[in-house]
Amino acid sequence: MSRIWKSKFKDHDVTDEGLYLSRRQIMAGAAGLGLGSIAGPAFAAPEGLEPNPIEDITNYNNYYEFGTGKTDPAENAGALTTQPWTVKIDGKVDKPGDYQLEDIIANAQIEERIYRLRCVEAWSMVIPWNGFTLASLLERAGVQSGAKYVAFETVARPEEMPGLRYPVLNWPYREGLRMDEAMHPLTILATGLYGKDLPNQNGAPLRLVVPWKYGFKGIKSIVRITVQDEEPFTSWSDANGREYGFYSNVNPEVNHPRWSQATERVIGAGLFGSRRETEMFNGYADEVASLYAGMDLKKFY
């Protein structure tokens, strides 16, 4: 077992966007004065990641329930009602039931996690999430011993989600994790970004973030979490199992059948920005590689 990733940050460390920007200006100013080598402030990203501006994060989304275009979710997701919100937790848990979102959040320790999101489409951006570990919620619900997987389901409301009219995928959107992946301290349920409530197009009010997996594993607007023994149904592997596997770990050596995963376009780098090399497990190999020890990652893609 590799070292457990511990966040140094508590909820009071969550920074609002204004502070972010002013801090970035300070950094830029410092660099201009030739003080470029100063260590980042205490609440900078652990990996030294520079978050994308909120405009990037909220105007470039894959949320097919609101349309397949990258800006469709920003245009259409406003119609989604996120209050009240209930998450059904069922399956092999001691305390199954309908959990109110306020109640989930009131009992959660919200922290900030700055993660790079690597999309299976070979682009990436850096997002400052606010959220809590999935493990903490699962522990609260009481996972029964021996349970192997966690399944998730997105809300499906045709009257609020125009994309559901088209059979792009087998709706509702579903995803899943192995129990050890779900319990990993890097795996969070996000409730916000940049210190604000999660915008609808980013999966409000509650979405999964698994930073070492391709973005589509991060299921949005979760209404159901089921603990079970069978490998969960996952929408993308159902749509095309050859292209999208259950694991979908970021892996520069295992290419998508239709495109290379060796490099990624950096969103926000502009017209002449260069690509960056994709890292194994999206840069989190130290934390998660041991989960897959002995597995052939070409077979379990």
Partner: peptide, 13 residues
């Protein structure tokens, strides 16, 4: 439009 940032977040695509 791509040069002047009118094509959104991902002008290349």
């Amino acid at each position: 439009a791509g040069l002047t940032g009118q094509l959104g977040v991902d002008p290349v695509k």
